[in-house]
Design a protein around this nucleic acid. Structure first.
Length: 383
DNA sequence: TCTGGGGTCCTAGGACCC
DNA sequence: TCTGGGGTCCTAGGACCC
């Protein structure tokens, strides 16, 4: 049976929600992002984009390009709720919905032609349902696989519908630049450019061996297949998370353990809370520091003797890892992440064979979580 | 202009085991 | 003496995505 995959991507998601909820922002250049000294643009409304403002741009630069822009701090909880509604709508079309982020998802519509008609009709119906439920615009791509559907949704924004013609996929994508290949970023594009490759068609005509010599065998096999419009990846709902992290860029650089440790402990707190919320424990912990000088990122990781979801367990490991960094250089970012995730139930099973009295402690942590949910993050609970 | 925060996946090298 | 070959696990770094 012919696979039909849709990819739906919300148009300027965060900025559009702000314009929806604040009529005075409509029709004006709006930038959602951190106003802090080191803030960046999270989303720019379509009115702001002609000025050259785009996601991930330093806010200072964005304000310079578009001084009249209205800068709005993000309301992540609101965006998450809208996202939930969005995924609910998609779920009414197919059980196979794979979210990629808050504002985009794949929907496998294979076999649904009888209900919804041809791929273009499916895409229109989806787009209309999303607008009806959320009041927001989306662009939709339809094709025989995930790569093509995602590429298509980005070709006609905002409010676009793009169907990659079934049976003529290779010719359709051949003229597009290699950066459209999923997994080809600035570095790989540069390397491939060295081979004289500029378009997807160029990559399709190149031998996989020649590609591998430039970018490695893994990426070469991947992009060679994509360039031939082949992508076997399934639409997978309920993908399990592989890591849970929290990080923060400091307003001012810090140096020395006495300054860095309190920040790291707070990051561990947040990770622990996120883990408990998902009823997960981490079997490993990674600490991440970014040095101001050279913007260098360094990580140190270890496995935990006992998988943990509490601040003390993660914090102890984090403190030991911290000693393995050079803390005399100015530091601009501090982060922690748990990995090797497993369910809390599985961890408790293991604990039956140990002697750690973690059950009591866990009750206490849940109580603390409840208080923090009500009163926010800044409450101290002693050392 | 001076670079967020949430992730995923891949690679290379070293330890360790048989 | 002077050095195998395969497999697995772990760590650190980095590219990439939204």
């Amino acid at each position: 049976m012919q696979r039909v995959v849709l990819h739906l991507d919300m148009d300027a998601f965060y900025a559009s929600i702000e314009q929806r909820d604040h009529p005075e922002l409509r029709g004006k250049p709006v930038i959602v992002g951190g106003a802090a000294r080191r803030g960046v643009v999270m989303t720019a409304s379509y009115e702001a984009r002609p000025f050259g403002v785009h996601s991930a741009m330093p806010m200072a630069r964005a304000r310079q390009l578009c001084p009249q822009a209205l800068v709005v701090p993000p309301r992540m909880a609101v965006y998450a709720e809208v996202s939930r509604q969005l995924m609910e709508v998609l779920g009414s079309y197919s059980p196979l919905v794979e979210p990629l982020s808050l504002d985009e998802a794949f929907v496998d519509m294979t076999g649904a032609e009888g209900l919804f008609g041809a791929p273009e009709a499916m895409a229109r119906a989806l787009q209309a349902s999303v607008r009806e439920r959320t009041g927001l615009g989306a662009s939709v791509g339809a094709a025989k696989n995930k790569f093509l559907a995602k590429l298509a949704s980005d070709l006609d924004k905002p409010n676009g519908i793009t169907v990659v013609p079934f049976g003529a996929e290779v010719a359709f994508i051949a003229p597009l630049p290699i950066r459209r290949l999923w997994g080809v970023g600035p570095k790989a594009a540069e390397l491939l450019g060295g081979l004289g490759l500029g378009t997807i068609g160029d990559v399709a005509r190149c031998s996989e061996a020649a590609l591998a010599a430039k970018v490695g065998s893994g990426l070469a096999a991947h992009i060679h297949a994509l360039a031939h419009a082949e992508d076997p990846r399934e639409v997978v709902p309920d993908r399990d998370a592989r890591s849970v992290g929290s990080e923060t860029t400091l307003d001012e650089d810090l140096r020395g353990e006495a300054a860095v440790w309190p920040v790291l402990r707070q990051m561990c707190d947040r990770v622990a809370r996120a883990l408990r919320k998902e009823e997960l424990c981490a079997g490993g912990l990674r600490v991440k520091l970014r040095y101001s000088r050279g913007f260098r990122l360094m990580t140190r990781q270890c496995l935990l003797e006992v998988p943990s979801d509490d601040s003390a367990g993660l914090g102890n490991a984090a403190r030991e890892l911290l000693e393995r960094f050079d803390l005399e250089e100015p530091i601009r970012l501090v982060g922690a992440a748990g990995f090797r995730l497993q369910t809390s139930a599985a961890t408790r099973q293991l604990d039956l064979f140990g002697e750690k009295p973690r059950e009591k402690r866990s009750e206490l942590e849940h109580a603390v979580d409840a208080i923090r949910e009500r009163f926010g993050d800044k409450i101290g609970f002693g050392s």
